[in-house]
């Protein structure tokens, strides 16, 4: 039964419609973006190696992204301005940051805070204060610079035509790491908005320490954890449920 649904899901995905794993769970496509090979001492080799067989690049699978405009409509790939990006592999839609000091400004940072963290024994984190300056204090976010307030402000205003934005899980956020590049390790043609060091929060609790949450650093693709009082960037996500 599960194999049938998986096959169906794959067939749907291969016909270029969003594939959500549905009742099978939330596993995302295992795409790394790597298209070059390694020897013992070199990376970025352009041909496969018989002496080092079955590497990442021997199993090619490319990212497929679509740019979306401010109302959430698909744009041609050569569009010069866009507000969101859909990952056609996972079906997730990602916020693209702006270069201004508005709500979506790419230089803004937030502490990790979730007032509903009492559903597990993780700590609520560090709440932002009205005097905070790290998220530009646009009129819609005067309450302070934390992840929960940012999510609320974006959903109050709407973005790409939707109001169900949320903090990504660690699996979701690491699904857009492009391991084929570094500085930054992301597909720059779709996400040109990174400021390095590019540490981003996820919603995922860190099991070993209730005061920590998982992070992704897009300089090179490091996935780790950090104390919730740290100020990191946030890239919101929607869909995929």
């Amino acid at each position: 039964m599960e194999k049938v649904s998986l096959l169906l899901c794959l067939m749907v995905w291969m016909s270029a419609v969003d594939c959500i794993a549905g009742n099978l769970g939330e596993q995302l496509p295992n795409i790394t973006g790597v298209s070059t090979w390694s020897s013992a001492k070199q990376n970025h080799i352009s041909t496969s190696r018989q002496d080092f067989p079955r590497q990442d690049a021997d199993f090619p699978k490319d990212f497929s992204f679509t740019k979306l405009d401010a109302s959430g409509k698909d744009l041609p790939d050569n569009a010069g301005t866009w507000s969101c990006v859909r990952d056609n592999g996972s079906g997730l839609v990602w916020e693209v940051k702006t270069f201004g000091n508005d709500l979506h400004g790419n230089a803004h940072t937030y502490t990790w805070y979730n007032s509903r963290a009492d559903s597990d024994s993780s700590s609520e984190g560090t709440e932002g204060d009205p005097g905070d300056k790290t998220c530009g204090n646009p009129a819609s976010l005067t309450a302070g610079c934390d992840t929960e307030k940012f999510v609320s402000a974006v959903n109050a205003a709407g973005w790409c035509g939707q109001k169900d934005w949320r903090l990504p899980t660690v699996n979701e956020l690491n699904s857009i790491i492009n391991y084929g590049t570094s500085l930054p390790a992301i597909s720059k043609n779709y996400f040109p908005d990174l400021i390095m060091p590019a540490g981003f929060w996820t919603a995922s609790p860190y099991a070993a320490n209730p005061n920590f949450a998982w992070i992704v650093i897009f300089d090179d693709g490091y996935v780790g954890s950090c104390v919730k009082s740290w100020a990191y960037y946030v890239r919101l996500v929607r869909g995929g449920d």
Binding site: V34, A40, K41, H44, Q55, Y179, T181, S182, Y222, V223
Partner: peptide
């Protein structure tokens, strides 16, 4: 099997102590 793009002799691994990617 994934190379570390930023360093010629580097590759990625996962530390199963906590799940960090290193």
């Amino acid at each position: 099997s994934t190379p570390f793009a930023g360093y010629p002799g580097g590759s990625w691994n996962i530390n199963f102590n906590d799940g960090a990617h290193e």
